[in-house]
Lab assay of single mutants.
Amino acid sequence: NKFNKEMRNAYWEILHLPNLNEEQKNAFIQSLYDDPSQSANLLAEAKKLNDAQA
């Protein structure tokens, strides 16, 4: 299933973003579980936030 793979990839990438705190990571990961079809968008948002907090 495409979403499972996308979701897993997004999950791991978000988990390893160095500039997000636990609360931010948890919020993105919760959103992933709530709507796996948004994995790519959530990952993009997480990366933007990560870069902004660098």
Rank of each mutant, 00 (worst) to 15 (best):
N1Y: 00
N1W: 00
N1I: 14
K2R: 10
F3K: 15
F3Y: 02
F3R: 15
F3H: 15
N4S: 03
N4K: 01
N4D: 15
N4I: 01
N4A: 02
K5V: 01
K5W: 01
K5H: 02
K5L: 00
K5F: 00
E6G: 01
E6M: 05
R8A: 14
R8Q: 13
N9K: 15
A10Q: 01
A10W: 01
Y11I: 13
Y11V: 07
W12A: 02
W12E: 04
W12N: 03
E13F: 07
E13P: 01
E13A: 14
E13Y: 07
I14N: 00
I14W: 00
I14V: 03
L15K: 15
L17A: 07
P18I: 10
P18N: 14
P18W: 14
P18E: 15
N19M: 14
L20E: 00
L20A: 03
N21E: 14
E22K: 09
E23Q: 12
E23F: 14
E23R: 11
Q24M: 06
K25H: 12
N26A: 13
A27H: 11
F28R: 05
F28L: 07
F28W: 06
I29A: 10
Q30W: 07
Q30T: 12
S31I: 06
S31K: 08
S31P: 04
S31Q: 10
L32H: 00
L32I: 06
Y33V: 09
D34Q: 13
D34V: 08
D35M: 03
D35F: 04
P36E: 02
S37A: 11
Q38G: 07
Q38L: 09
A40E: 11
A40M: 13
A40K: 12
N41D: 14
N41S: 10
N41Q: 09
N41R: 10
L42K: 12
L42A: 06
L43Q: 11
L43T: 07
A44S: 06
E45F: 03
A46K: 00
A46R: 00
K47Y: 04
K48S: 03
K48L: 08
K48W: 08
K48E: 08
L49P: 01
L49S: 08
N50F: 02
D51V: 07
D51Q: 12
D51P: 04
A52F: 08
A52G: 11
A52T: 12
A54E: 03
A54D: 11
